[in-house]
Design a binder for these strands. Structure first.
Length: 514
DNA sequence: AAAAAAG
């Protein structure tokens, strides 16, 4: 099967050919002819099945005839998240390059006025998240009475997010006679109900995309203690040691955790961005764009990034937190191994996550092996094994995750002299970068030197992982970003960077240490 | 349990 006999226009076929795609995916093959026949379509398909092109391509063909009038878009596409909406717009830009189409994106968090101006000029395709769309209609800047074709994408997710009342309102504003394309990954009763209300004699198109992960993705789980700082330490180690890591998305369950992990990785010298819904929209777009372009190899994200985002060639997905819902696991892991490429998905699993993992394994129908390597709690002196708690105090993260609330550096230092003495010693090699205000009193620097032996011992234990052949880390330097880190530590809390990956540290015998 | 979306 090729694109050429689906009924798409020459222009659209040329645009598809230009992108290198030759064969339609099953959902495209089934849906496109129905859309072109102006039938309603009920598409049951997960993301990653080529669903977006399944409506974008025929819409482009349909839109070749006719022209948009001011404030009256000809077609409307509803998306649950701003990123997905932006991504659909990119599809129109890509495949519609040869057409003079006006495509407008109506999403929150960005300038209202620009959007309004665009609406005034007339748009062929309006892509929107519900809130901002209703905002525009209520202010009178937008009339939906000219909409010929309505797309409701990711309907089940909209349901999860409480958007269905908004969707129902919007549907009342578009003509009854419009064509409707409705996409959902699942069919819960509430979704079934609204398909009956919104669709007229729909053609059902179902892609058997079992709730499973791609065979090209190597999955593993790594046990961890439940403390967040332990998980962060483990994450850093996994990042350092990951094979063939080109870029990675690190998923957390909570926005707060995203921010913490992001900041922590930054402090440890990683080149990393963040993406969650509490960030302002320009920051969200910038992070995603930098990640897509490869400028940022690492992205810490909430589930806003789990579904639908098309980021080609994500080599690794890390679950910093195991998702509580198994579907989310499938979506997250689906960010890698796309289009037949290989990928790696590594989940950090605490004892509390065991139940979730069982549910995930049941859903995907396979067991997820424990990662190879000594990630277990070891009897032979491992990271979590017989390593004394005191010697782990070197991990500054501990002051946050371990005690619940962030503590100011100074308070910490008074709390436990012996440990902090070592702490100071650890900090010494990189403390040259610190502003004077953060320098520790000399009184504390002195015991630091006396405490050097324990530090060496600990570095040895760290080197157990770091002592792997250099080649193992050879891919990582692009991830590390030593210089900016030294800038950043100024506006984060003072602390020790001795646990940076070996390749990020200046020579072991740095001036301060020699 | 949380995230997402309108300010």
């Amino acid at each position: 099967m090729s694109f050429s006999n689906l009924g798409l226009s020459e222009k659209v076929l040329a645009a598809v050919a230009a992108t290198g795609y030759t064969n339609p995916t099953p959902i495209q093959e089934q849906a496109i002819p129905h859309v072109l026949a102006r039938k309603d379509v009920l598409g049951i398909a997960q993301t990653g099945t080529g669903k977006t092109a399944a409506f974008v391509l025929p819409m482009l063909t349909i839109l070749e005839k006719g022209r948009a009038r001011a404030r009256m878009p000809r077609t409307l596409i509803l998306e649950p998240t701003r990123e997905l909406a932006a991504q659909v717009k990119e599809n129109f830009d890509r495949y519609g390059a040869g057409q003079k189409l006006n495509v407008a994106l109506l999403i929150g968090g960005v300038s209202f006025g620009d959007q309004d101006a665009k609406l005034t000029r007339g748009v062929d395709v309006l892509i929107a998240t519900p809130g901002r769309l209703l905002d525009h209609t209520e202010r009178g800047g937008l009339l939906l009475t000219g909409v010929e074709l309505l797309v409701i994408d990711e309907a089940d997710r909209m349901l999860d997010m409480g958007f269905i009342p908004d969707i129902e309102r919007i549907c009342k504003l578009v003509p009854f006679t419009r064509q409707t394309l409705f996409f959902t990954a699942t069919m819960p009763p509430e979704i079934r109900r609204i398909t009956e209300a919104f669709l007229h004699n729909p053609q059902k198109v179902e892609v058997s995309k079992p709730a499973t992960t791609a065979v090209t993705v190597t999955q593993s789980q790594v046990p961890a203690g439940r403390e967040a700082h332990e998980k962060r330490e483990l994450l850093r180690r996994l990042l350092r040691e990951a094979k063939d890591l080109k870029n990675a998305i690190i998923f957390c369950n909570r926005k707060r955790e995203v921010a913490i992990v992001h900041k922590s990785l930054q402090k440890h010298g990683f080149s990393v961005g963040a993406l969650h819904g509490d960030m302002d929209q320009p920051a969200r777009m910038a992070a995603l764009e930098q990640f897509r372009k490869g400028e940022l190899p690492l992205l810490v994200a909430s589930d806003v990034a789990a579904r639908g985002l098309d980021i080609p060639e994500v080599s690794h997905v890390f679950n910093f937190d195991v998702p509580h819902h198994p579907d989310d696991y499938v979506h997250r892991v689906g960010r890698t191994g796309r289009a037949g490429r290989t990928g790696t998905a590594i989940s950090i699993v605490t004892p509390l996550d065991q139940k979730s993992m069982v549910a995930i394994e049941k859903l995907i129908g396979q067991s997820i092996p424990r990662a190879e390597g000594d990630y277990e709690v070891h009897a032979d002196g491992g990271e979590q094994g017989d390593r004394p708690r005191e010697s782990r105090g070197r991990d500054r993260d501990r002051s946050r995750g371990g005690r619940g609330k962030p503590q100011r550096g100074r308070d910490r230092e008074r709390s436990h002299e012996p440990r902090e003495a070592r702490h100071a010693a650890d900090a010494a090699p990189s403390s040259d970068a610190k502003p004077a205000a953060e320098a520790r009193p000399a009184r504390e620097a002195r015991p630091a030197r006396e405490a050097r032996p324990p530090r060496e011992a600990r570095q040895g234990s760290e080197a157990r992982h770091g002592s792997r052949p250099q080649a193992n880390n050879s891919h990582v330097p692009s991830i590390g970003r030593p210089e900016p880190r030294r800038q950043r530590e100024i506006d984060t809390e003072p602390g020790d960077h001795s646990h940076l990956p070996a390749f990020l540290l200046r020579p072991v015998r740095s001036p301060a240490g020699a």
